[in-house]
Each structure stands twice: as C-alpha cells, then as structure tokens.
C-alpha cells in the first residue's frame, strides 16, 4: 500500500506543481524535507539512548514484567498475538502511558522499543504484524490527557479561557483511538491486507 501512496503523492505533487506554476517550490521542498528528515533522526539519537538505557534497567530488574501485568487484561484483548509476559507488553504499556501524559520525548523511544519487541514475534520480516498495526493505530491517534501545545497557543493568542478546549479535545481524541483500533481489528481480517498477499507482492516486485 505504501508503494502506491508514495508514488501517488509524488505524481500528484509534480503534476499539481506544474499546473500551479510552483514547480521550483516542489524541487526546493523535496530537498529541504530530505535534509530535515536527517536532522530529525540525528536529534533522536540522544533521547533514544537515554530511554533505551532506562528500559534496559527496567527489563533486567523485572520491572517491565510488573508494568505489563498491571494492565494485562486490556492489553491482552488489544494484542491477542502477543504472549503474556512478553517484553513487548511492557514497552507498549509504557509508550501508551507516556503518550497520554504528553511526554512525546519519552513516548517515541519507548514506542520504537516496543516495535523492536514486536518484531521478535514477527515470522515475516518486512511485513507488519496484526499487533504492530493495532499498536500503530493507537499511536497515530496519539491520545493525550492534556493538549499542552494547543493550550499554550490559545493563551498566547490572547484567549480568556485557554483550557476550554480540553474537554472537546479529549472527546475527539477518544473517538480517534476507538475508531483507529476498531478499524485495525476489522481490516486485519480482509484478504486485501493479509500477510500472504503482502508476501506474494514482495516477491513479484
């Protein structure tokens, strides 16, 4: 699917850029974005190392297993393919907790650690598992208890009641999580998205 989406984006950009007379802009954006991607990734190194170090201590001391057991009933239902007590349960739990608290600096490294743990259960390297897709759905919804960035912008824009948006953001955010997880659970059963199909297409292309 990413093959088609990616190609469509590029075709669309060049065609639309040509029509709008912004083709030079397209070139500039492509090059700037590529450079920016590296800046983002390099910027992650320190934070990644910090959180992976802490997670290693948590693993060695058995803390990850305790964390995982704490909300196991919910997690088991969300991720039936992940065995009880697997490290992925601990890292996914910590990622979701960090996201909810709005600690995005911690959430990304913990999420990537969770992906590594989930990859250990993957029988088809290169192809996403059901658990990964569900986990991604939770993360792309990015449910936060306090939308701190937006509250900051509201108050710097002169709002008399900058926290008025908390309730509406929470409600819409909850819908995002529920819709994302439901969609992931339903779509994983479709033949169009089956692992076998993804595997076959990998060989032919």
């Amino acid at each position: 699917m990413l093959n088609y989406i990616w190609l469509s984006m590029i075709i669309l950009a060049v065609v639309v850029g040509g029509i709008n007379g912004k083709i030079e802009n397209v070139t500039k954006s492509a090059i700037d974005s590529a450079a920016n991607a590296v800046v983002i990734a390099i910027g992650l190194i320190g934070i990644m190392a910090l959180w992976l170090g802490i997670v290693k201590i948590a693993e060695d001391s058995g803390l990850m297993r305790i964390v995982a057991r704490a909300i196991a009933p919910i997690m088991r239902r969300l991720f039936p393919d992940v065995p009880d007590g697997h490290p992925a349960m601990g890292s996914m739990t910590m990622n979701i907790a960090a996201t909810m608290l709005g600690l995005s600096n911690a959430a990304t490294p913990l999420g990537l650690k969770a992906m590594e743990d989930l990859e250990k259960l993957n029988k088809n390297p290169g192809i996403a598992t059901n658990a990964m897709c569900t986990f991604l759905a939770v993360n792309t919804a990015g449910f936060q208890l306090i939308p701190a960035t937006m509250i900051g912008i509201m108050s710097s824009s002169g709002s008399k009641d900058p926290t008025a948006i908390i309730g509406t953001t929470l409600a819409a955010g909850l819908v995002a999580v529920v819709a994302g997880v439901t969609a992931a659970k339903l779509l994983q059963k479709l033949p169009l998205f089956s692992v076998e199909r993804a595997d076959r297409k990998g060989e032919s292309s």
Partner: peptide
C-alpha cells in the same frame, strides 16, 4: 509492507 496500518490511521 504496512498492510492495513495506513488505512486504520
């Protein structure tokens, strides 16, 4: 191969 993750998101 992202399978259904893009659509779910």
């Amino acid at each position: 191969k992202a399978r259904h993750a893009v659509l779910a998101g």
